[in-house]
């Protein structure tokens, strides 16, 4: 009985944390919208209107109410998924975001996949060969991934693999002649093409995806590799590893059947966090590759001082980021028996 009440208390506390964090995020975006030196009314109607029209629009936008009421209104709107109308597209921001977001998810997911497939083996290798030249080489590779700006990696990949070698396709998500060939179901073009059995379209989409996904995936691999190495080193120090070796297990089996599974929980949470980081990184990558996702949408909105669109995008990425952050923490508690006391 005590155990279940304790679990309930923990769940309640976690729930309160999550609610407070989301509220904090909404509060910050609300405040950002208010500190803007540019008058939102002028942004909406232009500078050359009479005072009556100005006042009417101000009233309609709810900007003459007390700040606290405005905040409550804003929270209500956000909860209903209403981020206002974008000045530049004249569409509800939420509809714009629904249109462009799948492209960003596709890019970030491909980046995480590449990061995991490269990062985990590199980290395992470095931990097993600790202190050798291999460990040093992995350290250099991850250090470069950490230190090079993602948009610069993108530019170099474009020059080498698109312009010079012509191994990959250039900017955009699809070549012009394949546009509109497959029906949109998931919004992820590669998946949609597979569902429609259009293999040429799939190959073309993968050719476009490869370079931006690699420029993101390299940074992810650096982070995941570094974390994998340190998780593995923590485990390799444990007594059960010596026991397994004394039992006569091969080093390969010690690493892959004994040690690596014990890192799995930490790895899953790390990879979840990486996905959030890549959603952020995608904003910069999309500019380089003319990738029509949320990042490009937000960048365009920034130059038009289209605050509704910018804040809507910030909230969407922020909510997903926070959810992954807190979710991975929760996952860790659920999956790791040692945190249950």
């Amino acid at each position: 009985m005590t155990r279940s009440t304790k679990a309930g208390r923990i769940a309640l506390k976690q729930g309160a944390t999550i609610a407070a964090t989301f509220l904090g995020l909404v509060l910050v975006t609300f405040l950002i919208g208010r500190v803007m030196p540019l008058d939102p009314v002028t942004a909406a109607v232009g500078p050359d209107v009479s005072q009556e029209i100005y006042d009417a629009v101000k009233e309609e936008m709810g900007l003459n109410k007390p700040l606290l009421i405005q905040l409550l209104d804003y929270i209500g709107q956000v909860l209903r998924g209403d981020f206002g109308v974008s000045f530049s597209t004249n569409q509800p921001v939420i509809r714009d975001i629904a249109r462009v977001f799948p492209a960003t998810v596709e890019l970030a997911a491909a980046g995480v996949l590449i990061g995991t497939l490269i990062g985990v083996p590199l980290g395992v290798l470095a931990a097993v060969k600790r202190g050798t030249a291999i460990d040093g080489a992995v350290r250099v590779v991850t250090l470069v991934g950490h230190s090079a700006p993602v948009f610069w990696k993108g530019l170099i990949l474009l020059v080498v693999f698109y312009a010079a070698l012509d191994w990959a396709n250039g900017p955009g998500r699809l070549s012009v002649y394949y546009e509109g060939v497959v029906p949109t179901r998931t919004g992820l073009i590669v998946i949609d093409a597979i569902l429609a059995r259009e293999w040429d379209v799939m190959r073309d989409a993968l050719g476009h995806l490869a370079l931006p996904a690699f420029s993101l995936g390299y940074g992810a691999a650096a982070y995941i590799g570094r974390m994998t190495r340190s998780f593995m080193l923590d485990q390799l120090r444990q007594e059960y590893v010596s026991v397994a070796r004394v039992k006569g297990l091969s080093e390969f089996r010690v690493v892959f059947t004994e040690v690596l599974p014990n890192c799995a929980v930490q790895l899953v949470t790390t990879i979840a966090l990486t996905f959030g980081l890549l959603l952020e990184g995608a904003v910069l990558t999309e500019t380089v590759f003319a990738w029509p996702g949320l990042g490009q949408y937000m960048t365009k909105a920034m130059f038009n001082a289209d605050m509704n669109a910018v804040l809507g995008g910030t909230l969407v990425i922020g909510v997903i980021f926070v959810a992954l952050n807190l979710g991975s923490d929760l996952l860790y508690r659920i999956l790791d028996p040692r945190t249950r006391t």
Partner: peptide, 19 residues
């Protein structure tokens, strides 16, 4: 803790757009 959970680059972008 709340502030630590925020995405840094995106928030910086939003701040700069506002300022």
């Amino acid at each position: 803790d709340i502030a630590l959970a925020f995405p840094r680059l995106i928030l910086a972008l939003a701040f700069v757009t506002a300022f």
